[in-house]
Nucleic acid binder design. Structure first.
Lengths: 333, 333
DNA sequence: ATGAAAGCGCTAACAA
DNA sequence: TTGTTAGCGCTTTCAT
């Protein structure tokens, strides 16, 4: 004998299994005496309903599949926190899979999770191929895409308006008294980067300032260090006193370059990152940056997904745009 | 009509559902013709077996429950990576829950996951109460505990021998030419901290050196900064040239204090952390530390758990001790 | 080699 | 208010 089943409870309580089921689910009236007998039997046997069986008959697994590119990436972990915590409120549990950027692994995960009868997917990835998107659609299981670069049409999602955030950040830097602001963006032609450049440009144009953009070929702190010379040269030639970089890691590399070359941050030059990764508040100088509320994005995503599962998804007929906050710290003034 | 079922396949292929099942599982011989018809039907319908139904009848969910204190904590995310990736090799999927250190949430998670018929648990937490342990045992579901501080008897696990690692690190610092090494430990009386102190002491005694220990009341970088004065005073008075701190964050705070007070790391003093968190390799100076192979711990844990599930667990009659590596970087010489 | 039938643990008509 | 019964989608005897 393994775990006690509803039959064992029924036998011990001297009622039928339907009555036990009714007590458990409060689905139909049960006489107080019968209810008490059932409750006693449940307690005595320490009975726990088998959710697998329940899911099977109710055609409802209360499971959502979360496929994450790499849980080791800080912001993805933050997203999962929000998903998990809010999902639980709605009695949904998370089935977690990682794809490590491998298209094949992603496809397998989708299939696998579909066989587990997940009611929805949340896909957390830097980028998603059209093929994968197609595959996802074929399952006919609702999904939410949380990637950084996607620009698909007809696909509602929860996201950050990077253009607006970069616009705000740029204006903030000017408002601090900087006469010129350099933006260091990505050489890659992706939606994320283009949005930030557009936001920077909008602020520049609005203020009637001159545009200075340097493009970098990578997004690590090393890349930030390596762009240092070129960026500093541009700054010196043009009286630039503030540099806004595409992310925190690159910004930190850039600050390192400055430190190695006698340039004081923020005294000689103000520096801003983007993202508010954990290192931004530990590094010295602490980094001025834009805090992306990943937890909230995760939370809203799972709520939206569940609404969609329940077919109440008028609410997600448009994208959710999440506002970020500028976090002013030591690296800028 | 929702998803196609085995019945639909059987009908289309003109065979019984038993035959379809046999083809899918290769459980019994099937004639080549029948097999082909079934395969064709499966392909045509894009049929995917319902794992819920399968789990129910086979009494095997292929699910392990992972309860993590907080997925936002870097090392926990690393553990999950290992668990997830290796679990998948064995066809196990992860049902993820977070407890956020709340005993009640933990209990609920255990119950909840049990109803989902998980075959095993992996509990990742800083510390686990005796009550929770009892609760876990009552489920009669195999589990592995991955906490930092536990010292339960009769509980095999996968862990780091902190005493040995601190011993090795201390000896390493001496081998680099340091005459005296200060250890900065935790005021708290916990297994983890006591083990590190014991390791430090063993090295000290073995080398016939003098013991210097400063205790700190917290484990953040701020705490490391705040202990700076006291630690530096001890160093100056006793000709200490190397400081080994309980973790990377504290070490970085301490280095900050040094930087603010004209003490050069590593020229004036060598500093070592513990853990090899991501910041250790980004911070300047890069931090010498002990790399704990969390991914491997996760990987070995899930393997051990699966063996135990399959009752092949002679292999885990004792603890698994995972070796760490000293990562020598710029902060020490 | 194949199909009919029982049953995994549960819910939900349907009767009574 | 209650019990009986028929499934949910699948695996696995047991016959044939």
């Amino acid at each position: 004998m393994g775990q006690p089943t509803i039959k064992d409870v029924a036998k011990l309580a001297g009622v039928s299994i339907s009555t036990v089921s009714r007590v458990m689910n409060n689905s139909k009236p049960v006489s107080p005496e019968a209810r008490q007998k059932v409750l006693d039997a449940i307690a005595k046997l320490d009975f726990k309903p088998n959710e697998l069986a329940r899911s099977l008959v109710m055609r409802k697994s209360n499971l959502v599949g979360v496929i994450v590119e790499d849980i080791g990436i800080e912001y993805m972990a933050q997203l999962i926190r929000g998903i998990e915590e809010i999902g639980r409120v709605y009695k949904y549990d998370i089935l977690l899979q990682s794809s490590y950027g491998d298209e094949n692994a992603l496809n397998n995960s989708i299939d696998f999770l579909a066989t587990k009868q997940v009611e929805g997917f949340i896909i957390i990835t830097q980028n998603l191929s059209d093929e994968a998107l197609l595959k996802l659609r074929e399952t006919r299981i609702p999904f939410i895409l949380l990637d950084k670069f996607h620009a698909y049409k007809n696909l509602t999602t929860v996201k950050v308006d990077y253009k607006k955030e970069q616009y705000n950040l740029t204006k903030y830097l000017f408002s601090q008294g900087n006469d010129n602001v350099l933006f260091i963006g990505d050489k890659a032609d992706n939606v994320l980067n283009n949005a930030k450049i557009a936001g920077y440009r909008e602020a520049i144009e609005e203020l009637g300032k001159e545009e200075f953009i340097v493009k970098i070929d990578g997004i690590t702190s090393n890349d930030g260090y390596n762009i240092g010379k070129e960026a500093i040269d541009v700054c010196k030639e043009n009286g630039i006193t503030a540099v806004s970089l595409l992310n925190d890691e690159v910004a930190i590399g850039f600050i390192d370059y400055c430190a190695d070359n006698g340039i004081k941050v923020p005294d000689d030059i103000s520096v801003a990152g983007f993202g508010d990764s954990s290192i931004a508040s530990i590094y010295r100088p602490n980094l001025t940056t834009v805090a992306i509320p990943y937890y909230d994005i995760g939370a809203i995503s799972i709520r939206a997904l569940i609404k969609r599962i329940k077919k109440e998804d008028e609410i997600l007929d448009k994208d959710w745009i999440i506002d970020c906050n500028i976090v002013a710290r030591e690296s800028s003034k």
